[in-house]
Amino acid sequence: MLVAPQVKAMLFTDWDGTVTIQDSNDYMTDNLGYGEKRRKELNKAVLDGSMTFRDSFSDMLQSVKKPFPECIEYLKEHIELDPGFADFYKWSVESGIPVVIVSSGMKPIIHALLAKLVGQKAADTIEIVANDVDVHEDGTWDIVYRDESGFGHDKSRCIKPFAELPDESRPMLFYAGDGVSDLSAAKETDLLFAKVGRDLITYCEREAIPYHVFHSYKDIHEKIKAIVAGEETIESAIENKNKAAAQETLASHHSSH
């Protein structure tokens, strides 16, 4: 991953359900696979720790029998862009703030949807760090995971090199997400944007991870713009700071005994 040195800030963002309204993998599972009820049972199992994200995701995708090219066309017909993303992306380019898509989905699907929803230039410019896919001659397909982790793609790994840069060259790091695939990245950046009413907030509340709630990318745009301009601080953007601070105090208290 190459990023111009000395950028002021970077946004790492989940794709499905964050940049898009619908989660394309959930959408395929619900409509072309074994349906919403079973999928939600597996999501719950990931949240409570009884199943890895990787195993639940493989199980979901294996229930989709449509050939891969048809899956892409089906998703292009049904998946919509978050109404605030195009404006945010335009501003980020003008402001020299890199946007990196970090997804547990599959790169060919994301690239195809980006081209349709934002434009070919964005699809060719935005860095996509995601799983791949192996399409067989008969049209059947399998997901190819990025790594050996229980996530299949441990999103924290592509953020850590930036988080570990020396202070003078380290940009402000933001992350936006909504669900169980974002759990590994939730603690890695300076400010986490978590989508209202989704599983990521449930997790952040349980683990006392600081976050700022967003309804659409318009909220993320306004908040990052204000922070980069120095009109607001990362600290002031955290919405559950009392709970997070209390948890941190408790943790340090325990570790000192």
Rank of each mutant, 00 (worst) to 15 (best):
M1H: 07
K121P: 00
Y27L: 10
K44C: 04
Y74E: 05
A208Y: 13
D199T: 09
G119K: 01
F12S: 05
K44S: 09
K160D: 08
L2D: 14
G150E: 14
Y211W: 09
G35F: 07
S252H: 01
I143S: 04
D59H: 12
W141I: 00
P108E: 00
S104A: 13
I143M: 12
A229D: 13
S92F: 05
S149C: 05
F85Q: 06
A194C: 11
V129C: 13
K40E: 11
A9M: 14
D134V: 09
V93R: 03
L165Q: 07
N31M: 12
A86F: 10
A115D: 08
L11E: 02
A130R: 02
V46W: 01
L117N: 07
G35D: 11
S149K: 05
V99C: 05
G96D: 15
D48I: 12
K66C: 12
F53P: 01
A185K: 05
K44E: 08
P210W: 03
K195P: 04
I220G: 04
K243C: 14
D124K: 06
F57H: 02
D178Q: 07
G230F: 00
V196I: 07
E232T: 12
P69E: 15
V3S: 11
I238N: 00
V46A: 03
F162W: 09
V144Q: 07
S236M: 07
F12Q: 03
K187T: 14
D14N: 14
M106E: 06
L32C: 11
R157Q: 12
T249K: 14
D48H: 13
L32K: 08
L192H: 03
T125N: 08
Q6K: 09
K223C: 09
S24I: 01
D142E: 14
F53G: 03
Y89D: 02
S156A: 15
D16H: 01
K243E: 15
E41P: 06
H215R: 13
F174D: 06
K155S: 03
A45S: 11
D30V: 12
F162A: 05
L75S: 02
I234M: 12
C158E: 07
R146F: 02
F57G: 05
H254N: 00
V196P: 00
T29E: 05
R198T: 11
D199W: 00
V93G: 04
K37L: 14
S92D: 10
E205F: 10
H212F: 04
D87G: 12
A226Q: 13
G150Y: 11
K37F: 14
D178F: 07
I227V: 11
Q120G: 08
E148A: 14
R198S: 08
L173G: 02
N242I: 09
V180G: 01
H254K: 06
G49K: 11
P67V: 08
T29V: 15
H111C: 06
Q247N: 15
S50Y: 07
L183E: 10
N131A: 01
